[in-house]
Design a binder for these strands. Structure first.
Lengths: 200, 200
DNA sequence: ATATTAAATTACACTGAGTGCAATATTGCA
DNA sequence: TGCAATATTGCACTCAGTGTAATTTAATAT
């Protein structure tokens, strides 16, 4: 509301604000309904109504229904690759990711993570899409690692490191769910990496 | 056509034979059309027509369109877990799967594998479903391993071993595709496992 | 203020996957 | 031959997702 700035894209315009709010409303509406009645039992018509928009407008904000869930999932992915990018030099690829994974996991709210994970389990379609984000994740990680470990000789090692790390994360979240959040995510991850070091 | 047997379920009845043939016709029709015009551009109506059945009957044989592709993928999965089950004792979990993976990979026709892999890449939806079979794979492998390595202490190690092996397979097929089949699958896999041993 | 442009919202009509149901046809077996 | 189980089909329906074109609303230049 501050009316000072004469112009410039520095201040968020009305348009951008509304856009952000609508996006948020759709996500919130979706989550609310998914939790209440399940993912598959929730139609886009319902979500649109709950968010106060038309069904068609939904597709102006999201490519598909499952994008609501996936957009949340992707938040952590971004943080992870960034952590790898900012990692100190001198460590091996696997060590680099491991540290990044554990550091990022410290900031993930367990409750919410479990909730999303359980929602995703409930629908085969979403479950499937989730794994796409894992692969995107792996690729992004490999990209980030390539900068730190250039040269074609490492290529396979980098891919393996990324794969194992994403896999570790996946396993950790599953365990978190099974344990119903008793142990914090970073602890679970440390255990997993310890087992990994012991040669598996 | 041998008309000898008077009765008994030992011989395949007419019903079972037709069922098998229909299943086969659907698969063949689907693959033919997918290759010719792409997965997304092929409708179930077309597949049904090509296979000489009604659209509704398709769903009597398959749960969904992508099951055509997935059913082929699953063939190898079954062989893999069986190879693990029949593996000799005395090796570590990872060694056990590694040997099984490599052995099974020797019987996979490269051409066909590349074809299916490329088809799957062409559709995001199928791509997604494919990863579900990977996870099913991992679970089946863990099951098989549990018999050989009982006790809850190994649980994490088994899951990791399964994850890495399925990941290795995935990576190998990708490489096979990129190299356009120059190197045979077992060779690629041996390379990957060598890198893995070198500590990644 | 006003006209102009670009972005946002909506309605409408359409395709295609997948399901429920009920009717018909075919096969296996007594 | 008759009966039960399995296979096949048509029809009507729901829902996700897309194309198109019209309308509304915000940003900007005059």
């Amino acid at each position: 509301m501050a009316s000072g700035q004469t112009k410039g894209p520095a201040t968020e315009g009305l348009r951008e604000r509304k856009r952000r709010e609508t996006l948020q409303r759709i996500t919130a509406a979706g989550m609310r309904l998914f939790i209440k009645q399940g993912y598959d039992n929730t139609t886009l018509d319902e979500i649109a109504a709950e968010a106060g928009i038309s069904r068609r407008t939904f597709f102006y904000y999201f490519k598909s229904k499952d994008e609501i869930l996936l957009s949340m999932q992707r938040l952590n992915s971004g943080r992870l690759t960034e952590a790898v990018r900012n990692a100190p030099a001198g460590a091996s690829p696997l060590e680099t990711i491991r540290d990044a994974v554990i550091r990022v996991s410290e900031e993930i709210p367990a409750r919410e993570m479990i909730g999303i994970h359980r929602l995703m389990k409930s629908s085969a379609a979403v479950q499937a899409r989730k794994h796409i984000t894992y692969v995107e994740n792996e690729n992004a990680l490999v990209e980030a690692l390539r900068v730190k470990f250039p040269g074609p000789k490492h290529e396979t090692a980098l891919k393996l490191a990324a794969m194992m790390s994403v896999g570790a994360m996946r396993l950790a979240v599953e365990t978190l769910d099974e344990e119903n959040g008793k142990r914090p995510l970073p602890d679970i991850l440390r255990d997993i990496y310890a087992t990994l070091d012991k040669g598996v």
